[in-house]
């Protein structure tokens, strides 16, 4: 068993990257590997509660992410600086994720066997 980290740096809508990162995290867990998920840059917007993508005829990514813990993807992290830079209130997040400083992210990355940057 290897330790994987999926890094997601894209906003939930506008490109397919966020959905594909979620799919890959789920698949990695499904194939019996250890997997963590890090939201950084615009990826932190994926954590926001009360998304209404129906207004742009898209599926709700937030709903799909609720499945992550059910598939044993429990190590969810976000970059504190990215959240602050974008003015997102950490108390309004829909997904329970752990805040990490840039230094902590560096050490998280060093602990991995492989990184999937989607």
């Amino acid at each position: 068993m290897k330790q994987f980290l999926v890094i997601s740096s894209s906003a939930p809508y506008g490109t397919a990257h966020a959905r594909e990162a979620t799919d890959l995290a789920l698949a990695t867990a499904l194939f019996d590997q250890k997997v963590a998920l890090l939201f950084q840059g615009d990826g932190v917007f994926q954590l926001q509660a009360n998304q209404n993508p129906a207004a742009i005829e898209q599926k709700n990514l937030s709903a799909m992410q609720q499945a992550l813990p059910l598939y044993d993807v429990e190590d969810l992290f976000y970059c504190t600086d990215s959240l602050q830079e974008r003015g997102v209130d950490p108390d309004t997040l829909a997904l329970s994720a752990k805040p990490l400083s840039r230094n902590e992210i560096a050490s998280l990355i060093r602990q991995q066997d492989h990184i999937f940057h989607v």
Binding site: K2, F4, S9, A27, T28, F31, H114, I115
Partner: peptide, 23 residues
């Protein structure tokens, strides 16, 4: 084929390199 083929390949590999990640 499915994403499992990526995971299986990564498990067997020393290095995984990603091209064209989102930003």
């Amino acid at each position: 084929s499915g994403l499992g083929q990526l995971v299986a390949s990564a498990v067997e590999s020393d290095r995984v390199v990603t091209f064209g990640a989102g930003a």
